[in-house]
């Protein structure tokens, strides 16, 4: 069974209050991502915030973030993700949850 999934279509249904130019998650060191064999964040993130880029490293776009914390857990051994909650009132705002 192989079904194409467009994550953008899923995230489009969600309400976000974006904190412009203040991402609450940051990659600490690009070189660590480059040398990371698994780059598990690119598969595990339920919002596909992490994508492998053409330089072999990882690009992070937090706009669709669901604030679950999975990336924080998968990158624990490398400690390469700086993870905070967004400022009060910003980020995902679940209508139903």
């Amino acid at each position: 069974m192989s079904i194409m999934v467009k994550i953008e279509e899923k995230l489009y249904q969600n309400r976000y209050i974006v904190d412009e130019s203040r991402p609450h998650i940051q990659i600490r060191n690009d070189a660590v991502c480059k040398s990371c064999e698994s780059q598990a964040c690119t598969v595990c993130c339920p919002a596909a915030c992490y994508t492998k880029n053409e330089t072999g490293s990882v690009t992070l776009a937090t706009d669709g973030c669901l604030e679950c914390g999975t990336c924080r857990v998968v990158c624990q051994d490398k400690e390469n993700i700086q993870w905070d909650y967004p400022r009060g009132g910003y980020g995902i705002s679940y209508k139903f949850g």
């Binding site: 899923k10 995230l11 249904q13 969600n14 339920p46 919002a47 669901l66 679950c68 914390g69 999975t70 857990v73 679940y94 209508k95 139903f96 949850g97």
Partner: peptide, 8 residues
Amino acid sequence: MKEYAAHM
């Protein structure tokens, strides 16, 4: 579908 959510 009206909302997509993720949680640990």
